[in-house]
Amino acid sequence: MGERVLEKLVRETTVEIKNAEGLHMRPAMQFVDTASRFDCDIIVSNGQTNADGKSIMQMSMLAATCGTRLHLQAQGPEAEQALEALRDLVEVKTFGEPPP
């Protein structure tokens, strides 16, 4: 009777909002679209509020202004790929919007 080890793949990172307008609805939708492509749960926190990274209503509650740092936690088989894609969207592509 060996103990079965369930490996839970959890990955975490922090990203910073860099576009001037912040995480308004259009970027929030891009975030949700990207997050939804991956097989994992994603929780996004601004330090006060936790939001489901796949829910546009919840993501709109983060009031993530330019300069806000968001903590991302992904859990599931594709956690790592999801966080990579989200970092690229938020910090490299900056949602296709200009900096301040």
Binding site: G22, H24, M25
Partner: peptide
């Protein structure tokens, strides 16, 4: 933009 986000 920050006020807009806070209202949202």
């Amino acid at each position: 933009p920050d006020k807009h986000l806070q209202a949202m």
